[in-house]
Design a protein around this nucleic acid. Structure first.
Lengths: 212, 212
DNA sequence: TAGATTGTTAATCGATTAACAATC
DNA sequence: TAGATTGTTAATCGATTAACAATC
């Protein structure tokens, strides 16, 4: 069996969790099966694109019937590594960090926020949305003890790199970076940049185009 | 002069605000000029890609010297429509909405949050991060009076569509959708979906690949 | 059966990357 | 001057879309 991991299109990976949302909605509505056409219609995409994306997860559908919703959810979840809950720490309990601690969307997607870390002494020991805030010095120890390998970085841009330098010395291997700066990490650490400004730029550009 | 608006690559639009961040950083460091090579190095991209992106904004650089930072910022800002501050309302003052109200990253990008709206009566009249919360019924009137044409949607998935149905009856023309559902809007209204789960899926997939 | 939908192979499209002459 | 960097034209790469036989 050849490993095609390197050939998965990034756009497909980004769409799969969106399909998952549709599947959950249909399941709640009592549906058992779903066709690529159904999903496409719901998302204003074209059926062939959905079919191609789903095929990559390895699922096999039935002509005329489509896919079995539960099975499809399983295939997608497995494909993007969401089979079990992934535990993560929030680093930086400011405005954005606090929000993400209370964002129930993550739980639904299998991301479990275990705790938060911050340099601000006033926050230590406090809880936000039921999650405790620890000093940054405890990160290494707790990451190891709790087997947490993912960090959600929500510190101000100025502190981001120095905090990352601490993170990379722990068991943490994946950093989901919400700070609008690019980070320097050693090989083996994976960074996913989440730049909210990009989405805003797309919207602004479309709006301006529509205005003319 | 031909209008090439339809041929701007979306990936370019997403990268431009990231370049802007680099430019601001360099400017603070006292730099006057910058080359595509400088920007590329900072972001782990290749120079030709940066050069191509910048060329689309219409700026002209000087061989050997590069681009004048201030001028380049102007071109990028103009290109993505961030010349003047854009006013926006937050719709849904829950966890995510509150966070975005306090997120200083937006101000830096020219997005000014004017106020928030929520159906929860307990929140009406209160302030979060200095922004007042109004009942949803006031949206139409205030959007018109304050000439606000952009809404940041941060309501729970279940309420999203019904809230959108209200939004589209106002002066608001652009919706930045943080709810993980796809929205139905009449022609002329522009929706930009911001799906945090997509970024998480990319990170999970990369992590899993690194693990094997 | 007839029609909808699948999986697969091929064609198209658009973005990225390469090559290179021009030039401060 | 020599070298770095630009703008432009061409080549490559990868994702999307189309076409179609197979089939529940």
């Amino acid at each position: 069996m050849t490993n095609k991991a390197h050939s998965i299109p990034l756009p497909t990976i980004k769409r799969l969790p969106i399909y998952l949302g549709v599947l959950n909605k249909l399941k709640r509505a009592g549906r058992i099966n779903v066709s690529a056409t159904d999903i496409a219609k719901e998302l204003s995409l074209i059926p062939i694109q959905v079919r191609k994306d789903l095929a990559l997860t390895g699922i096999i559908g039935k002509p005329k019937i489509g896919y079995e919703i539960d099975q499809l959810r399983g295939f997608i979840n497995k494909f993007i590594g969401w089979e079990n809950d992934t535990d993560a720490f929030i680093i930086g309990a400011g405005a954005l960090g606090s929000a993400l601690m209370g964002y129930d969307g993550f739980e639904q997607q299998g991301l479990r926020i275990i705790a938060a870390f911050d340099i601000n002494k006033k926050l230590h020991g406090k809880e936000i949305h039921g999650k405790k805030i620890f000093p940054l010095e405890k990160l290494k120890d707790l990451a190891k003890r709790m087997k947490v390998s993912m960090a959600v970085l929500t510190v101000p841009a100025d502190n981001a790199q120095s905090v990352v330098d601490i993170i990379v010395k722990t068991e943490i291997r994946g950093i989901w970076n919400f700070s609008p700066v690019s980070l320097n990490v050693p090989p083996g650490i994976i960074v996913q940049n989440e730049n909210l400004a990009s989405g805003l730029a797309v919207l602004s550009t479309k709006l301006r185009k529509g205005n003319k």
